[in-house]
Amino acid sequence: MIDLHVLPFFLATVLIMVAIPGPTTIYISTTSASQGFRFGLASCFGVMLATLVHVSFAAAGLTALLLASPWLFSAIKLLGAGYLVYLGVKVIRSKPPASGTTAAPQSQSRALGETIKKGFLVNLLNPKTGLFIAAFLPQFVTPSLGHVPLQIVTLGLLLVLVGGVSDTTYAALARTVGRALANRSKKPGIGKYIAGLLYMGLGVAALATSNGTSK
């Protein structure tokens, strides 16, 4: 059980934080704008699953390993940045679907599953997410109530829920903007180059940042 007197302050803080787009929000929005709202939702779901893993690590105290081991932090950050750059190159090199063709249900389901996996890995391989959660959630824990790990998990679930609503909203807006730009663009397929460059930019930005705590 969490302290209900603290809950309004926690939710207000989370609402302010999720309103400011971070790397994962940009990733979700880019995916939605370039591939469609369903794919944006799929990437959002993957990100949420990874956040739950980070919350579990924080509750179990495993995130402390990142704080105690700079080389482990750097290794995970390098993997995450490299994965984003890889996704960017893959998107740029991909062939756009032929005009007027519709993907088979099985093929589309597989593609959505791949998108969920990508969103999961992008967030899981971002050590700053784990450090942020480990630093933020305990600020709203009341030790006198006991069951500290359970309090962290409960607060983490609320964080994931609010973040999911925010990311879904961003995905919907991004899809609307992406469709409008695609209709105005005289160069078909330019969206994949924009998306690919954004992914690579996120990877370079992640590699350049230090051990901060941001979403």
Rank of each mutant, 00 (worst) to 15 (best):
L4C: 01
L7T: 02
A12S: 15
L15F: 15
I16M: 12
I16G: 02
P23D: 02
T31V: 15
S34H: 12
G36I: 02
F37C: 06
R38Q: 14
R38G: 14
F39I: 03
T51S: 12
S56F: 15
S56H: 07
A59D: 02
A59T: 00
A60Y: 11
A60M: 15
G61A: 06
L62N: 05
T63V: 13
A64G: 12
A68E: 12
S69C: 03
S69L: 05
F73V: 08
F73H: 11
A75H: 11
L78Y: 10
A81F: 05
L84N: 00
Y86A: 09
L87Y: 03
K90A: 13
S94P: 13
K95A: 11
P96I: 13
T101S: 15
A104E: 14
P105L: 06
S107R: 06
Q108W: 10
R110Q: 12
A111T: 10
G113S: 05
G113F: 06
E114D: 13
E114G: 15
T115K: 10
K118P: 01
L121Y: 04
V122C: 15
L124M: 08
F132G: 06
A134Q: 07
F140L: 07
T142K: 11
P143L: 04
L145W: 01
G146N: 05
G146F: 08
H147R: 15
V148T: 12
P149A: 11
T154Y: 13
L155C: 08
L157H: 00
V165W: 03
S166E: 09
D167I: 05
T169E: 02
A171E: 01
A172V: 14
L173G: 14
G178C: 08
A180Y: 11
S185L: 01
K186L: 08
G191S: 07
G191F: 14
Y193S: 03
A195G: 04
G196F: 03
L197Q: 05
L197Y: 11
G203C: 06
G203F: 09
V204H: 04
V204P: 11
A205N: 13
A205V: 13
A206V: 12
L207P: 02
S210D: 14
